[in-house]
Amino acid sequence: MSAYTATVTVRPKRGVLDPEAETTQRALERLGFDLADLRSADRFEVDLDAADAAAARARATEMAEWLLANPTIHDYDVEVGEA
């Protein structure tokens, strides 16, 4: 077993409204910042022990499917690195 950190990034699906991002963008522009676009995402860093990176990825993917992301409105990706 080795120690891994799985990073799960959860973001609104393409086409799903992202009011938090829109509000943030408006606020930045009000402060005088110049930007073309802005998207929001949630990032979870999960430390776990697994036999190999593939096993760590599989478990983190299962976590995303079950709880971290809502498949109706979210896309997610999983990156695995050695902790």
């Binding site: 009011p19 938090e20 829109e22 409105i73």
Partner: peptide, 10 residues
């Protein structure tokens, strides 16, 4: 079915 998420107004 579906999901409820952040209001358009945030």
């Amino acid at each position: 079915p579906g999901a409820f998420t952040t209001n358009e107004s945030a």
